[in-house]
């Protein structure tokens, strides 16, 4: 009986599962579950009875329909997106950002062809003046 009651919430006391709720309304519900079990009803049938009579909001796990899907999709999507952006940010923080233009030995990926051309011409000018 408690296994089923744990999966239900009475609308009168919204944040307390039925199995531990001390109100009279919840006591009546637990009694009803006990009666239904003794009549041979299955867990699914009992839960369906409660949904039909009191609405889907009595379920601890909202049914996977309509806007309720957001409850199931949003948290993993947000966690994955957060992990992705963290990974990207860490990778960029750890990348070398300083390039040595004089030697030409170290260049960052961000160097554009225009920059290369500029550096080459600069080096040529410097050589001419030596």
């Amino acid at each position: 009986m408690n296994a089923i009651a744990k999966q239900l919430y009475c609308p009168v006391c919204e944040s307390t599962p039925l199995d531990v709720c001390p109100t009279e309304a919840c006591r009546q519900w637990r009694e009803l579950i006990r009666t239904q079990l003794s009549q041979g009803m299955s867990e699914t049938e009992i839960k369906q009875y409660f949904v039909d009579n009191y609405g889907a909001r009595v379920l601890a796990e909202p049914p996977r329909t309509g806007l309720n899907w957001l409850v199931y999709i949003l948290p993993p999507v947000i966690i994955l997106a957060g992990a992705f952006f963290l990974f990207r940010s860490f990778r960029e923080w750890t990348k070398p950002k300083v390039a040595s233009a004089g030697s030409g030995a170290e260049r960052t990926e961000a160097s554009s062809p225009d920059k290369d051309d500029y550096v080459t011409r600069l080096e040529e000018e410097l050589k001419k003046r030596k």
Partner: peptide
Amino acid sequence: MTETIPQKRGVPLWVQIIIWLFIVGL
């Protein structure tokens, strides 16, 4: 001679717009 070269890579604008629209909608 050293110089700091700005990093141009980042989240594309369309992705940023979608993310903001999603957050505002939520």
